[in-house]
Design a binder for these strands. Sequence first.
DNA 1: GCGGGGCTGCGAATCATTCGCAGCAACCAA
DNA 2: TTGGTTGCTGCGAATGATTCGCAGCCCCGC
Lengths: 148, 148
Amino acid sequence: MTEGWERRLRDHGFRITPQRQLVLEAVESLRHGTPEEILVEVQLTASGVNLSTIYRTLEVLEEVGLVTHAHIGHGPPTYHAVDEDTHIHLVCDRCGTVQSVSGTVAQDFVARLEAEYGFRTDISHVSVHGLCVTCKDRAYEAEADDQL
Amino acid sequence: MTEGWERRLRDHGFRITPQRQLVLEAVESLRHGTPEEILVEVQLTASGVNLSTIYRTLEVLEEVGLVTHAHIGHGPPTYHAVDEDTHIHLVCDRCGTVQSVSGTVAQDFVARLEAEYGFRTDISHVSVHGLCVTCKDRAYEAEADDQL
DNA sequence: GCGGGGCTGCGAATCATTCGCAGCAACCAA
DNA sequence: TTGGTTGCTGCGAATGATTCGCAGCCCCGC
């Protein structure tokens, strides 16, 4: 009985290796993870795995549709398993906090982009920048200062 | 008669320098530009300007609200003058093309994020990933192959 | 079980960005 | 206008993330 992930790899002409299994499991258990974080998780089981392998493996897993990545803020990308609930990251450009919200808030927006531009949005990949509630209030004060 | 950009810098305690003027002009004339591209543009006028200065200057200009930046795809960020019409980048993850569309398509989405989460979206900073019309069609074929 | 070619570990290379520092110059005051 | 004080810049090195080249290993079809 071939598991789904094995089939997906094979169907795209890739081999099944322990590293690929471990990386996929790490992504699933972390839910959010940068390559560096995934490396640490993988090394709990297999300490010999190299960071280059993490990068190459994530690329492969993404190509066959088992994981996706999103860019949050300026740092390295974070990877997710595709079966995660799709969500959107609200990134505060001032304090750097990241809030995950359900992808459903963007459904209308996504539909509109498809209708008007034929663009098929990968919603889980979107990250939205701006100011969180807290920092927004502080920004108002700064604007008030500007007026003086 | 002090020009607006000079006033903005002074009001935040920054000095007026030729480099800052040139970088701002370069951003305005390029409309979209990475630090590297801005350097080239600036060096048409002043060849001695250094890339470090471009980075530092962009940071300052952003802090005082004269420019903003957006992350498009995996490469370096691109900078825009703030008086540009706000727009959104639709980035195709397959072919890499970037399409700029009016920010108005996102107004409802932005309003909803503010209403539901108190999040103030910087719309010009959003970049939306997915598949463009052309690549979307090609993706359908690939999915069809998967079914076999 | 065997062989070929994909995969991995390792270290070096690359790319973007940041930092440290010494000299220069913008700006305030007299 | 003339100084003096900082802030700003150029330069080169450091850093951090990601990629590359290559030799050896091991997955997989026969």
